[in-house]
């Protein structure tokens, strides 16, 4: 990274690069490295024991499992939303388009208390659901709902530009070749959107796994039932079990890195497959 740039007429490379690397190292890299160094205080067996203890495993299972389900729901709902926003005209379309970003913009604590109030036993949606015998708040279902909420924008915003730019002609070509609308959508349009869909799914999944603020209010936080991994980190910290907290964090972090890696592969694959110009 330090290799001098090829000759350039513009000044400032040293200064700006220096600033960038300094700030990046101080704020991000060194603290993250500290996390990994801290885990070395545990022996390998201690690390494995911590990570595979019943409570930790449950928390990880809850976080990863529900995040996966929520991302799946986001995938399906996101596709419907994108399709409606891009392909149809209806009153309020622009407003709904803007609304998609609210889960990005709304502070997570606010989302947390609002969703909890909404789905609590006496809430607007919680009450009718309770009559059907469905309890949302303070159960894993609540965690799932909160994860769906914060994941909404990802699939929509990654797929939207691709669907807008999709050539009209490929659909017309499919129709001329005798494909019915369903065949055109499933065999031509969706495969063209696949890289974007997978990217959106992975982003929503990654976000939901690490999500804290919007989940803890509605979760109930019962150990082994509705306790998410980030909360367990906080609990371990408050018990001054730093190494334990760190071990859980490392597992989550490594998973995040894997997701980034997979995302990069998806992007590269999409590029080699679809470099077609015109």
């Amino acid at each position: 990274m330090r290799g001098a740039p090829k000759r350039s007429a513009l000044p400032g490379f040293g200064l700006t690069m220096g600033l960038t690397l300094t700030w990046l190292s101080l704020l991000i890299l060194i603290p993250l490295a500290g996390l990994f160094i801290k885990t070395t205080e545990l022996s390998f067996t201690q690390f494995v024991d911590t990570v595979t203890s019943n409570r930790t495993l449950h928390a990880l299972k809850i976080s990863f499992g529900l995040a996966f389900l929520a991302a799946l729901v986001n995938l399906v709902a996101g596709l419907l939303i994108v399709w409606a926003l891009v392909r149809y005209r209806f009153p309020g379309r622009r407003i709904f388009d803007a609304i998609v970003d609210i889960p990005f913009a709304l502070p997570t604590a606010v989302a947390g208390v609002a969703l909890t109030a909404l789905f609590a036993q006496k809430g607007w949606l919680g009450a009718p659901l309770a009559e059907l015998g469905i309890k949302v708040a303070f159960t894993p279902l609540g965690i799932f709902i909160a994860m769906v909420f914060i994941g909404i924008p990802f699939v929509v915003r990654t797929v939207q530009p691709v669907l807008i730019d999709l050539e009209v002609e490929i659909e017309e070509a499919a129709a001329c070749l005798g494909a019915n609308r369903w065949q055109t959508v499933t065999r031509v349009i969706l495969p063209s959107l696949t890289p974007a869909i997978l990217t959106g799914f992975a982003l929503a999944f990654a976000r939901a796994v690490g999500e804290y603020g919007s989940v803890i209010f509605i979760a109930g936080n019962l150990p082994n039932v509705s306790e998410i991994a980030p909360l367990l980190i906080v609990i371990r910290l408050s018990e001054y079990r730093y190494a334990d907290a760190t071990a859980i964090a490392v597992v989550m972090l490594v998973t995040s890195f894997l997701i980034i890696f997979v995302l990069n592969r998806i992007q590269r694959w999409a590029q080699t497959r679809a470099l077609a110009v015109g």
């Binding site: 050539e167 490929i170 031509v188 495969p191 063209s192 679809a274 077609a276």
Partner: peptide, 8 residues
């Protein structure tokens, strides 16, 4: 512009 299906 041909409209070939890029993923096929």
């Amino acid at each position: 512009h041909y409209a070939l299906f890029r993923h096929m």
